[in-house]
Design a protein around this nucleic acid. Structure first.
Lengths: 105, 105
DNA sequence: TAATTATATATATAGACGTTTATATGTTGA
DNA sequence: TCAACATATAAACGTCTATATATATAATTA
């Protein structure tokens, strides 16, 4: 008689969602989803300031969404779990579905 | 050669994630996930103030996550798409997985 | 050790957001 | 129309957060 809605950890859900709720953080996360990249490479690819990228990487790390690896002077970041991409794709698809299914304009 | 990370609508993703990034909003959303409920019923079940519930319902509606239906003096809210629950369950599972898989404590 | 590069942190600020209190709007029944 | 109930909105407040600027730490090389 239980459905999916039970046993959800609201606190954990809100925490993760909050970390995914910023455009720049999403860009950074997706940027390191395929291969690990150094901070400077991320800065270069996204055109964001270095302190800003560092700040967001710290948040992403706090949420365990990325892992860190130092190599010489460089610090490499990489998405920890590919399932994150599946969830993002699901959310993206949902967003499109909600828009197309809405009855009231 | 493309992977899941391409073609994601960053803006839409951030918008949806932001709406899911508040504990009370999540509680309200899950509260109306099975059956439609009036505002007063939600207020009663969750122990939140009526203006607060109304405010969050407005946000949920803005994100198309709930739909509204008036019946007499009551206004009933209901989750628009069951896929939302699947995504929440996926996020929840991910959160647990990230915690158990982390190497650095 | 000095200089250079890479990254992190500290501080400040402006805007967004959740919440409360108070009030308004809308609906029903007498 | 008046009273009672259901819901929405407005204003005010404190807190959080994204960002910029400035500076510090860490690693490399000369």
């Amino acid at each position: 008689m239980n459905n999916r809605a039970d046993n959800l950890n609201i606190h954990s859900l809100a925490f993760l969602a909050k970390c995914l709720a910023d455009e720049n953080r999403l860009r950074i996360l997706i940027c390191v989803s395929k291969v690990k990249k150094s901070v400077s490479r991320i800065v270069e690819e996204l055109g964001l300031s270095q302190p800003l990228v560092s700040h967001h990487l710290k948040e992403l790390r706090r949420a365990l969404l990325v892992k860190v690896e130092r190599s010489g002077p460089f610090v490499y970041y990489e998405m920890t779990d590919q399932r994150i991409l599946i969830i993002l794709a699901g959310l993206d698809e949902l967003g499109a579905a909600l828009l197309s299914e809405r009855t009231t304009f």
